[in-house]
């Protein structure tokens, strides 16, 4: 039953490509930031699924650090868009 994690990770990556359509189309800059934020969240989920699939549990620590760093990057891009930087 370990294959279900592989299928779930694959489907999540395909969903992330769906968010990338909005990243390319998006008429304004805030739309693109929203798409990048969604892709970051999906990437954290994929990392946690892959850590169980390959039994490399250090991936979960990478996922925690990835979530915090993507939060910092989102905050800075939002500050730049809002004109406070």
């Amino acid at each position: 039953m370990i294959e279900m994690f592989m299928v779930a990770a694959l489907i999540t990556v395909i969903i992330g490509f769906g968010a990338m359509i909005r990243l390319i189309l998006g008429p304004t800059n805030p739309d693109r930031v929203v798409a990048v934020d969604t892709i970051n969240t999906l990437t954290v989920a994929v990392l946690i699924l892959l850590s169980v699939l390959y039994e490399q549990f250090i991936f979960i620590d990478v996922a925690i650090v990835y979530a915090l760093l993507s939060f910092v990057s989102t905050l800075y891009i939002a500050k730049h868009i809002g004109g406070e930087l």
Partner: peptide, 15 residues
Amino acid sequence: TNAAGSHAISRAAYK
């Protein structure tokens, strides 16, 4: 981080 980030994006978009 998702809650705080979405608040930051919406505030920046309004500004």
